[in-house]
Structure formats: structure tokens, C-alpha cells
Amino acid sequence: MEAVVDNLPLYWQGFRTTLILALVSGAIALVWGTILGAFRVSPVPPLRAFGGAYVEIVRNTPLTLVFFFFVFVWPQIGPSVPFFISAIAALSIYTASFVCEAVRSGINSVGVGQAEAARAVGLTFTQTLSIIIVPQALRTVVPPLINVFIALAKNTSVAGGFFVAELFGVARRLANAHPPDVIAVLIGVGVAYLVITVPAGVLAGYVERKVVFAR
């Protein structure tokens, strides 16, 4: 346990980096995923095709490969960026595909009659989606979105293999420096992840119960 106690500042740095990665990537993924979800239900065929292709390609690509592209390939074809920014880009683009599907399922859960009534009074597709459909869809979308963001918090561990000093990166560094204390080091990192994911899981359960009650 000495390796853990003596390196608490390093753990705190990794915890803070993990939290920032999760929050920033989650915010970007929420915006981009919502846009993609709108594309998926759009009456414009090219937008629907783009949304569908994006989800199928990105969702079925290993996250490690997405990281590899942004860390090693992108600097060869575009501007070089810090590893931290590359990690945010990889996590955001990957998570957005799951956000898209959650948003799409929420939109599809709203009765067709709602959209037909909106069109009957002259609302455009954008107005129908933003004023009528999305506010109703949020009731069913929030719980699965929280689960997506819990998965995102755990997926930040991949960044530790690509030169980002988040919790997993800290664990690898400490494990190499203190081989006899590997188990204690890993337990410390596991507890740090639980501090992030358990409250989010409790929040998801609370929101889900409220949604069921509201229905």
C-alpha cells in the first residue's frame, strides 16, 4: 500500500485527467451524436445514408484502432495536435455513434401521430424535431445516455496506452516502478474509476425510476 499512499498526488492527477477526458468527450459526443440521430430520421436520403454509415463503421471499429488513427495517422495527413486532444477526438467520435443510436431510439419511441400533427399545422422537419419530438424523446433517452457515458468513463483507460496520463496510464507507470505492489496499485486505480462510475450508475437508476413513474 505504500506505493499508493506515497503517490496519491499522481493518482489525483490521473483521476482529474480521466474526469476531464470523460466530461469534455461526453459533451462533444452528445452534441455530435444528437446531430447524427437527427440525420438518421431525416427525410433527406443522403443525410440518412451518412448517419447510418457513420454509426455502422465507427461503432464496429475497435476503440484502440480509432485511437491509433488519431495519434499516429492523423499527424501524417493533418496538423499535429497534443496526445490529450487526440484522445478527446477519438473518444468523442467513437461515443457519438452510441449516443446517436440512443437518441434515434428515443425519437422512434414517440408516436407517429405527433409528427403527422406537427406537419399538418405547417411545422418543418427541424421545427417538429426540436419542438415536438425531442422534448418527448428525452424521457426515454436520458437513462441509456447515462449508461453510454459510464462506458465512456471506462473507455478513457484506452488513452493510457497512448501517452495520456489518465488513471490507467498512472497505474502502468506505478506498476513498472513498484512491481511488488502491483495489486495495490491496480486496486487503487479501480477504486478511483468506481468513484466516477458508481455515482453515475446511481443517477441512471434514479432517472429511470422517475421516467417510469412519469409514464
Rank of each mutant, 00 (worst) to 15 (best):
L186T: 15
P82W: 03
F168N: 15
V66I: 13
V164G: 00
P143E: 01
L123M: 14
V73R: 00
Q114E: 05
I187K: 06
V112M: 13
I35L: 14
Y11R: 08
V112Y: 07
I77P: 12
V103D: 04
L152S: 09
G78R: 09
L91H: 00
L152F: 12
L8A: 11
T95D: 00
F168W: 07
S130E: 08
L47A: 11
L63V: 06
G33L: 06
T197N: 12
W12Y: 14
A165N: 12
C100V: 04
I77N: 11
F163S: 14
V142D: 05
A27D: 06
A177T: 13
P62S: 06
A137S: 01
V158Y: 00
P43D: 00
P144D: 09
I20C: 09
S25C: 07
L186D: 11
Y206F: 15
F162P: 00
F168E: 08
G169H: 13
V66F: 01
L145Y: 01
V134W: 01
K210C: 15
R209N: 14
F98T: 04
T61A: 12
V110D: 07
V195N: 05
P144R: 07
V185D: 01
A192E: 11
V202T: 12
K210V: 15
F84P: 00
F70L: 03
A27L: 15
Y54C: 12
V198E: 13
P43F: 01
H178R: 10
G26E: 02
I132A: 13
I57M: 07
S109I: 03
A175D: 08
A151V: 08
L91D: 00
N176F: 08
G51P: 02
R40Q: 09
R40M: 12
E56G: 09
R172Y: 07
F163W: 14
F70Y: 14
V185R: 01
L19W: 06
G51L: 05
P199N: 03
T126F: 13
I187N: 04
D6Q: 12
R59L: 01
L186C: 09
G169W: 00
T156D: 03
P144S: 09
G188I: 03
P9D: 10
T140W: 01
G122C: 08
V211H: 03
L203V: 09
V198N: 04
I77E: 03
G106P: 04
I150K: 01
F125A: 02
N7Y: 11
V182C: 02
L47R: 00
R16G: 13
L63N: 07
V81F: 10
A89L: 14
Q136V: 02
A175T: 15
V55P: 05
L21K: 05
G78N: 11
D181L: 03
F168M: 14
V81M: 13
I20V: 14
L138Q: 04
S130V: 06
L65I: 15
L21Q: 11
L145C: 11
V121H: 08
A151H: 06
V134C: 05
F15R: 04
V148L: 04
A200D: 15
A90N: 01
I93V: 15
